[in-house]
Design a protein around this nucleic acid. Sequence first.
RNA 1: UGGGGCGUGGCCAAGUGGCAAGGCGACGGACUUUGAAUCCGUUUAUCGCACGUUCGAAUCGUGCCGCCCCAGCCA
Length: 562
Amino acid sequence: MDALATDFIRVAVVEDTKSGRFNRRVHTRFPPEPNGYLHIGHAKALAIDAGVARDFGGKFNLRFDDTNPVKEEEEYVDGIVADVRWLGWDFGDTVLFGSDYFEQMFAWAVQLIEKGRAYVDDLSPEQIREYRGTLTDPGKNSPYRDRSVEENLDLFHRMRAGEFPEGSRVLRAKIDMTSPNLNLRDPVMYRILHQSHHRQGDAWCIYPMYDWAHGLEDSIEGITHSLCDLGYRDHRPLYDWFLDELGIYHPQQLEFARLFMTYTVLSKRKLLQLVQGGYVNGWDDPRMPTIAGMRRRGYTAAAINDFCDRIGVSTSASVVDVALLEHCVREDLNEHAPRVMAVLDPVKVVVDNYPEGQVEWLEAENHPQHPEMGNRLIPFSRELYIEREDFMEDPPAKYYRLAPGREVRLKNAYLVTYSSVVKDEAGRVVEIHCTYDPASRGGEAPDGRKVRGTIHWVSAVHALDAEVRLYDRLFRDEDPEKATEEGSAEERSFLDNLNPDSLQVVVGCKVESTLATTQPGDRFQFMREGYFCTDLDSRSDSLIFNRTIALRDTWAKIQGAG
RNA sequence: UGGGGCGUGGCCAAGUGGCAAGGCGACGGACUUUGAAUCCGUUUAUCGCACGUUCGAAUCGUGCCGCCCCAGCCA
């Protein structure tokens, strides 16, 4: 059992199951508000919430915390459900909604009023703020605080009946206006909102606030451990107060630190700004840290979950290096993505001594470490394309690719030796001529000579045209919030740090013919380039690939070091 | 100046009184029909600071410093 105690939350759960606190049950929940899309930070919360349930053989609920009709939309519900499923979490066959408990919540509110622990306040929003006091000064009681139970009951029922305009009254918990914890200074439980709810329609015109609703939702569902982020630490006394006053089943709230990541923003407001401001192409733009964006980019759920496991669970504010996420993605894709050849920046190669019109179908392995993934046949012919970068007329030391006087291996094909180059008037290489060694079919020389360089290629006549979208980090600075040189207002500083080269669309790429039947979502390793996935917009007659993540590139590093 | 939380190598993070895990990154090397992967190795720790308690402290105590969160009829 103790093997499960891998972090402070699981330690607490282990203790609770040992002591029999919740009859050894473990039941958690993930409670998103349907007002935006899930991002990597939610993936972490999910991994903790659902992960604890999974590890302890418990249950897990997906419950929408939909208590505010003005901010919530059905569109987001569907998106979130799809994302949670895609990440692989099992929440049974029911999606729950906090709004389904409105009637019960109302009854409990009445109970609190009858107990003298809640009252209807007529103060305006501004007055409530004034009466609340400040961080250093205590608040003061509302003049309506001591209304009789009868009057409170009457008013509260009339609030529900729709007799009062929005903002005119609220129901408040009667706790302590002088508490050093602002959350305990008579928090609002219900506000009047003459708004239709996405599920309740016009059944209600009073809506519960988070602090009042959340613990009740947890209680109703029999949640044992209500896990949330550190921002709610100060709310815990209130969570406990409501449940204790009502005397109903009482889950344990536990808080962990939110995720922050370098080169990334994760606040809903900023993400929304990126989308609405047109800085990205929607919530599922592959540059977005949203689950939808990462999925479209080609990230796997396994990689995301692995990342969540590796960053750990703690209570210290931390900024995780995005390089760890990238590592997880590479690791998973390296293991599972079939290899394929694609030339992103093609330059023509003519094999002078190869018979014109001849085509050979050569065998290529789909994965060097996994023979069980099989082989495929790729066409070889007299005219090929190779990467422009893989030829240099005057190469630096330790350049292992094609150059005057050099022999290189065409992956899975033949050894070829440079013979000449053709340039246009501008001096740009337009064609490279080579000769091949017919005895080296497959790439091995019969005399056993070693050829250091191996490059990828595609047969010119067989290759398919494709568009490739290369993605880079969305922000230039590791900390997007960092003030820019212009000293702009902090409100838009993160926008000033956007990386202008975060998306590079490359057209005229040449990919091997086996990609003709690829479907959106398919993932590959374009050998020596990186991991790519077929985009949602890709069609058989206009292929589009997204670069999920480039391969580690030691050569580039050596070059960069100069 | 109120309350809450947090400070362990570049980034995460174990550790809860007995010689400071691990991962990522970085840097070397081996191997290589992907300059990938894989393998091996290296690097950097006054455990925020100070003073105490103790045979012994990252772990306990006191004081200080620094960072984050809270004043929605948002969640």
